[in-house]
Each structure stands twice: as C-alpha cells, then as structure tokens.
C-alpha cells in the first residue's frame, strides 16, 4: 500500500518540483522569452478559457469522428479478412503501403479531393488512426487458439458465429492495444488537418500563437493537446481494464 502511494507521490513531486524550478527561473529572468512561466500559462488558460474551449471542442470533435471512422473501417476490413482468409495478405499489403505514404503527401491529396472541410479533417484523422487498429484486429483475429477453433468446428458453428463468439473475444487484447496506440494519433490527425488551413481547432490556435509570438497561449494550447492525447490513452487503458478480466493478457487466451 505504501509503495502504491509512493508510486504516485514520487513522480508527482518530481513534476511539481520541475514546474516550481521553471517558475523560479522565470521570476529570476533566466528563461528565454519563448518559455513562459508556468503560472502565466495557467493564467492564460483561465483567461482565454472561452477561446480555448471553442477550439478544443472542434479538435475533439474531429478526433472523435475520425477515430470512430477508423474503427468502423478497421472493423469491417477485419471482419472481411476473417471471413475470407485469402484477403489477408492483400489487405495487409495495401495497409502497409498506405501507411508508408507520408502524411504531408496525404494531406494535399485529401484537400484536392475534398477541399478544406470537415470531411477532409475527419478522413485525414481516420487515415492516421486506421493502421494500428487494423493491425491489432488482424493479429488478434489470427491469435485464436487452435483447439478452440476445432471446438467450434465440431459444434458446426457458422463463420459469423465463429467471428462473434470466438475470434472477436479472443482478439480483444490485441484490439485494445491498437485502439490505445491510435487514440493519441487521432488527436495528432486533427491537428495536422487544422494546420493545412482550417479556421477552428487547437492546431489553428497553436500556429497563430506561434506566428504572433503569443507564447503563453501557445504553451496553453500545447498543454491541452498533451492532456488530450495522454488522457485518451489513459481512458482506453481504464476501459481495457474493465472489459478484460485480469486473467487475459495480450496473449489472447489464458493458459
């Protein structure tokens, strides 16, 4: 119990000390103008609260929609590949090729196709999140225990029953791994889309703050982005812990 407290208290106090050190250094005039004092950043977050909230909302909306779209796409692709094993290599190859196109090349194509619009933002986000979820899906669906597969064969289960009752539950640990990796990427996808020239979003706020040298606002918006990405990862870890019982690890099925 005491070790559990120190597990939180130790890094927590290090974080507070670091913040304090920056504050003191700032007060002593030791920090460059690009690094504001933490107190100033917090002040800005409170003072600019309404603006930040507005832009944050639009980023979160993009990220959530793109994430959902990526899940839908990865799930459908995973289902298809599971029902028709022959598609697996093709699907993975296409996925890998798409994944290796740099995002700075994808963004212009999407803009040409869809303009700077909500669909473009969401698609770009989904594009970025898709691969980890898809790979998790494929790996997980392939990780079904052989004996369990034979059990479903003896029971004369239909392919759909096999998917819903066997493959999907055994794939969950892998799927969660993919979902966890993809969640911060959804935030990133929304930002990248915003950097291509939208009018709202934390990305816009950041870039404008950067150009106008509003360092407090820049740091505040970056801080929010950090909280969003780490928070989304953390939230998924919590959901994972609730959904998967302790006896199930990333190996899929307990011994």
């Amino acid at each position: 119990m005491s070790s559990r407290i120190s597990n939180v208290a130790l890094p927590g106090s290090v974080f507070l000390l670091l913040t304090l050190a920056f504050e003191l250094a700032g007060l002593a005039g030791l920090l460059p103008p690009t690094i504001p004092r933490p107190v100033k950043v917090v002040e800005n977050m409170v003072g600019d609260g309404a603006v930040l909230w507005l832009h944050c909302r639009s980023t979160v909306l993009t990220a959530a929609c793109g994430y959902a779209m990526a899940i839908g796409a990865a799930f459908s692709a995973g289902f298809l590949v599971h029902q028709h094993k022959a598609l697996e290599t093709a699907a993975l190859t296409i996925g890998t090729v798409l994944n290796s196109i740099p995002i700075i090349a994808v963004a212009p194509i999407l803009i040409i196709w869809m303009g700077v619009s909500w669909p473009m933002r969401i698609t770009l986000t989904a594009f970025l999140c898709f691969f980890p979820i898809f790979v998790g899906m494929i790996q997980g669906l392939g990780a079904t225990e052989r004996n369990a597969g034979e059990l479903f064969l003896v029971l004369a289960a239909t392919p759909a029953q096999r998917f819903w009752k066997l493959a999907l539950p055994s794939a969950l640990p892998y799927i969660f791994l993919g979902l966890k990796i993809a969640a911060p990427l959804a935030v990133l996808g929304a930002l990248v889309a915003e950097w291509t020239g939208t009018e709202t979003g934390l990305g816009v706020l950041m870039i404008n703050a950067m150009f106008n040298f509003q360092m407090e606002r820049l740091w505040a918006s970056v801080l929010i982005v950090c909280i969003l990405s780490a928070g989304s990862y953390g939230a998924l870890s919590l959901i994972e812990r609730v959904v998967l019982t302790a006896d199930r690890t990333a190996d899929g099925i307990a011994p």
Partner: peptide, 19 residues
C-alpha cells in the same frame, strides 16, 4: 453427424473460453 450435433468432443486441455 457433426452438422446434426451428434458428436461431442473433449479436448486434452479443457479449451474453455476464458471470458
């Protein structure tokens, strides 16, 4: 017989679904 569910099979390890 399998499709009519006339066969029961017990594997060496129990093969219960852990979830």
């Amino acid at each position: 017989a399998r499709k009519d569910h006339r066969i029961g099979f017990v594997f060496q390890d129990a093969t219960l679904l852990p979830w």
